[in-house]
Design a protein around this nucleic acid. Structure first.
Lengths: 324, 324
DNA sequence: CTACTGCGTGAGAGCGCTCTCACAGACCTT
DNA sequence: AAGGTCTGTGAGAGCGCTCTCACGCAGTAG
């Protein structure tokens, strides 16, 4: 019985006789043997771990249910494949270079990259170093060679806006997300598409761009109310923003709801809080768990040498509750 | 210039001449050299990573702000020391053995262990294998050799209960946490201590044990109300439970607040939602970030060969808001 | 001037695996 | 019967580091 044969058994290769296999397995169980990962990595050149990299502040990462949900589903999917998830947050720009060096050092076999800002070249750098990367959200650089998984942000935003029009609201505003991110841009595009499709014109007074946070939504809504007190409906680019917007509306004495005189609000994401909100939030549901799982699966596929589709767009759906 | 010298420079050892050091550093920068971690681990026997292990369901882990807060501060502290955090959730018992094998394989240098249940021997097993472990919360096994960091659960619960008495409530109930966990037990002990100190007797009708969840708090409160409709104040062992309890009280037509006829409720944790609740929740603040950071520091100290204190109890404080 | 100490350096082993290659033996083929 | 193919196995190299040990060259002591 040589080390080579033992190694073959432990790696589950097929070209081993049944007796040899049984013998090795029994022996391994006997001494409760665990292969040394470092030694294996050294020779295979693989680390059996992938990075979950979020390019946001700690605060955002741990506050936004979207990131938490993505982390959760990625962790499950990756762990199920026997790989480790190395969780990293790069809150500052300097962290970028450090992460690239880290990845280049072969510490991770691939990267799940979330919340890419602007035309950041991080994914291109990683790919150039031979580190397969899968993004959450379409890269703004428009680089076709990149792999990404995204929700149908444009379609969802259009759906939400059209829903507001169809409920009889004529003056529909939008609280947008950050415009240096694809989700922020796309949800604004969807709003504009709905405007266009119904023959309305785009009015900057009805648009306030904020963050995806509730503070951002609150401030944006204040600005819109100041400019256009005649607003009848609002599409907020995230649930957190919608919650902030509703707070602003209520402070201005506006009632939020689906009734005739009420102002209607639709969010985006369908986070857990959306349903528990008073009144429960009407929103566009984005399949967060599926998004995370799909990203992970794409990366796993790439790691095993396959070439999965570069682009995967998951459908969203409108969840009608009490705010619109 | 030998590999040995280069290695010495890169590891920051002192017995190298200045010229040699400069030369190596320049060369390293030139080729943007990154040491291969696997090779290093193979020879040093260290992995430069520590596990963050939560013995709870995925759902709990990602839903309870306590765990999220601990993850956050542990991640920051560990990353600052140049180590990786390997994030693991063992939702099922079978995962235990697998994790032990994993740790035994030298994949992690130490373990941060959260949410230990009952008299689980996991920490003892890990220590026996030579894997330093630091717990969050006093182990129920009462094993003095273990290392742990905890909040002053007993003191906090006593403080909360005495506060309720001092506001004039005579009949004070408690919604406890799970009794297979130290935090659950200790917070009940604190409640009993307050009873005793004020010469009151313990009444089982005023105690309902639930989970740390809001559903658990809701159900427990229902039971207490059925048995003791004369209840005037409630100490809930977690904020989530307090939120559930308040929901139950309101459904029973009881007003929650600090006024004369109101029923008073005090929670425990001071999660973010506590302040945003309507009415804002009076609660015992547990320093979550500090708890996570201290655990991590203790582990880091052990990894560098020190023997830190086995037991660290961090103080809690009462935050007075509108519910009591 | 020899002997000792100390510091910086280089040679070389070896960490525990995987992988390639060669080979023995069983089984076909012509 | 000779040659070919196939399958399972073992020998041995080597992955990229760190670490021990020995050595050379100062500086200091006797």
């Amino acid at each position: 019985m040589s080390r080579a044969t033992a190694s073959r058994v432990l790696r589950g290769q097929s070209n081993v006789s049944d007796e040899a296999r049984d013998a090795v397995q029994a022996a391994a169980r006997e001494i409760s043997y665990t292969p040394n990962k470092a030694a294996r990595s050294l020779v295979t050149g693989r680390s059996d771990s992938v990075a979950f990299l979020v390019d946001e502040s700690e605060e955002r990462m741990f506050t936004d249910p979207f990131f938490l949900g993505m982390l959760r589903s990625a962790q499950v999917t990756v762990a199920a494949a026997g790989l480790q998830l190395v969780f990293t947050v790069t809150s500052r720009r300097e962290d970028h270079a450090q992460f690239v060096a880290y990845a280049a050092g072969g510490h991770v076999d691939g990267v799940l990259l979330l919340s890419l800002h602007g035309e950041d070249q991080l994914p291109q750098q990683l790919e150039a170093l031979g580190v397969p990367t899968v993004l959450s959200g379409r890269p703004l650089s428009g680089d076709d060679s990149l792999f990404y998984v995204d929700a149908d942000n444009v379609g969802g935003a259009t759906m939400a806006t059209e829903y507001l029009f169809s409920s009889g609201r004529q003056v529909v505003a939008t609280v947008t997300g950050p415009q240096d991110m694809c989700a922020g841009q796309d949800r604004l595009t969807g709003y504009r598409n709905a405007l266009e499709a119904s023959g309305r014109s785009y009015d900057e007074g009805l648009v306030a761009s904020g963050e995806f946070t509730s503070e951002g939504g609150y401030a944006s809504m204040q600005r819109i109310l100041a400019r256009r007190p005649d607003v009848e409906g609002v599409f907020a680019a995230s649930d957190l923003a919608a919650i902030g917007a509703i707070r602003a509306l209520e402070e201005h004495g506006r009632r939020v709801g689906r009734g005739a005189g009420d102002i209607a609000v639709v969010g985006f994401d369908d986070i857990r809080d959306a349903a528990q909100q008073r009144p429960p939030l009407t929103t566009v549901r984005q399949p967060i768990a599926e998004l995370g799982a799909t990203m992970s699966r794409r990366l796993l596929e790439r790691l095993s040498g396959d070439e999965p589709p570069h682009r995967t767009i998951l459908p969203v759906e409108l969840v009608e509750r009490e705010t619109a």
